[in-house]
């Protein structure tokens, strides 16, 4: 099985190279961002936002805006390593599924290898992000290390859910339909998100369409900060969801792979 993980990681080597470039970029941009937020244009922009009374922004709002921007940079390395469909595309193009069928590796292990390959890359992404978070939390007061940690785990969990769904759809649809698998994974996640947060999504739409009266609109705006706090403080919920989705996806992928045999 280790050999198949090695092969998958080779398949994702291009992503790994992108990962290195993105990482260097993220480190540079993050440091520039922190310096600018302390002494440069971002600091001035924050002060200006606070001085303009029609914005109704508090110091916490400005800090949160800064934190969100920084968190987005931080998540790029994880997002770059997280596309397992490339391994399926490469296997399909080379015809490796024929070879994997003749290897002395059970179907269970072959399917598991796919999951472990992507989680190995995620683990690497998380590790690098945590190092970066350690540095940034010392350099800036935008977020503590614990908050960075929460954000990183939340992002890794969301990406894991996406990858687990993508693997399932790749097995279900077969080789050559990886784009559809990605699309279906995103759609599934969006549908679940809307179903689980129907009320909030409805309010958000009403805010965006201007249908909500002013006092309620202000309350609704707080939802964004709530969501951000959720990612920082309740990452374990997303982590649990990722574990459950991964187990379900592995089980279903295994059933499909056993039926299709040659398709893994």
């Amino acid at each position: 099985m280790k050999g198949l993980i090695y092969k998958d990681i080779l398949c994702l080597k291009k992503q790994f190279i992108n990962f290195c470039f993105v990482l260097i970029g993220v480190v540079i941009v993050s440091i520039m961002y922190v310096l600018s937020a302390k002494y440069g244009n971002l600091a001035r922009a924050g002060a200006q936002m606070l001085s303009e009374t029609e914005n109704h922004l508090t110091k916490i709002d400005v800090k949160n805006l800064g934190s969100i921007a920084l968190a987005l940079f931080m998540l790029l390395p994880i997002a770059v390593v997280g596309d397992i469909t490339n391994a399926f595309i490469q296997d399909g193009t080379s015809g490796f599924h024929k070879i994997s069928g003749m290897l002395p590796v059970s179907i269970e292990k072959r399917v598991l290898a796919r999951f472990l390959s992507i989680y190995a890359l995620f683990a690497m992404g998380v590790l690098v992000d945590l190092c970066l978070a350690g540095i940034l939390s010392v350099l800036t007061d935008l977020m503590t290390f614990a908050e960075f940690f929460g954000i990183i785990i939340s992002a890794a969990s969301v990406m894991s859910i996406f990858s687990a769904l993508a693997i399932f759809y790749c097995f279900l649809l077969g080789y050559g339909k990886e784009q559809y698998a990605m699309l279906l994974s995103i759609l599934t996640m969006i549908i679940f998100f809307i179903l689980l947060n129907f009320g909030k999504v409805k309010t958000l739409f009403r805010i965006m369409s201007g249908a909500l009266p002013e006092p309620e609109r202000a309350d609704g705006s707080l939802m964004m900060w709530d969501a951000f706090d959720f990612l920082k403080e309740k990452a374990w919920i997303l982590l649990m969801a990722a574990v459950i989705v991964s187990i379900l996806s592995y089980g279903s992928s295994l059933v499909i792979a056993k039926r299709k045999r040659g398709m893994i």
Binding site: M1, G3, Y6, L10, Q90, S94, F96, K98, L103
Partner: peptide, 23 residues
């Protein structure tokens, strides 16, 4: 097989590393 099946980017060394972790 009639067709090779190994990924085009793989070298003999890569195949060796993969296979020694399989067989």
């Amino acid at each position: 097989f009639a067709e090779m099946g190994f990924h085009e980017f793989m070298t003999g060394k890569d195949i060796n590393t993969m296979m020694k972790n399989i067989y």
